[in-house]
């Protein structure tokens, strides 16, 4: 019943901006146009009956190399919880590789700040309007975004030292 309410609310109010519905193992989710994501989420938050006021998680998936990659390489996933109705909804949006950016939620939820920084750091999705979109988990010297599929898992971390200028780096001896 709750699911029907959410469905009528979203399709009635946003129409074409809701691209499709996806249900897997009983979990309901909706694909939303990338430009409309923030608008839809804020409407779900503000609605007095649905009241999805708890942002559980923001995460991203890289679909590079899969046959459905052309629909959009990156998928951003927003998990919202309604504490009042104890219901959960997942909103998804697909982004192409050359347009990997989306509106930030950091002004709407305190926890979005760090969650978005993590997605930026590990997956390289830009959040437009984020006040402090900096690395959070990886070191400054690491280039690239580790959770992207084209980032190899054999990457070697930079070595750190407080006196690197004093250290002589001996080139590898080809005879050993």
């Amino acid at each position: 019943m709750m699911e029907d309410k959410i469905r009528t609310f979203l399709t009635g109010r946003f129409g074409d901006k809701i691209l499709s519905e996806y249900s897997h193992r009983g979990q309901l989710s909706f694909y939303v146009q990338a430009q409309a994501v923030r608008e839809v989420i804020l409407a779900l938050k503000a609605d007095s009956e649905l009241k999805f006021d708890f942002l559980t998680d923001i995460t991203a998936v890289d679909h590079q190399g899969q046959s459905w990659e052309k629909e959009g390489r990156f998928e951003i996933i927003y998990i919202l919880t309604s504490l009042k109705n104890t219901s959960r909804i997942i909103l998804r949006t697909k982004l192409q590789e050359d347009a990997a950016s989306i509106a930030t939620l950091s002004g709407d939820w305190g926890c979005a700040n760090w969650l978005e920084r993590e997605v930026w750091d590990l997956m390289g999705i830009k959040f437009e309007g984020h006040p402090d979109l900096t690395k959070i988990l990886t070191v400054e010297e690491l280039e690239g975004h580790p959770l992207r599929k084209d980032f190899g898992i054999t990457y070697e971390m930079p070595q750190f030292s407080h006196n690197s200028s004093d250290i002589e780096v001996v080139p590898d001896n080809p005879h050993h």
Binding site: E141, S161, S164, I167
Partner: peptide, 12 residues
């Protein structure tokens, strides 16, 4: 092995 680099936290 990568050569050592100076570690400077950028924004703090």
């Amino acid at each position: 092995m990568n050569s050592p680099v100076e570690h400077k936290p950028s924004n703090v």
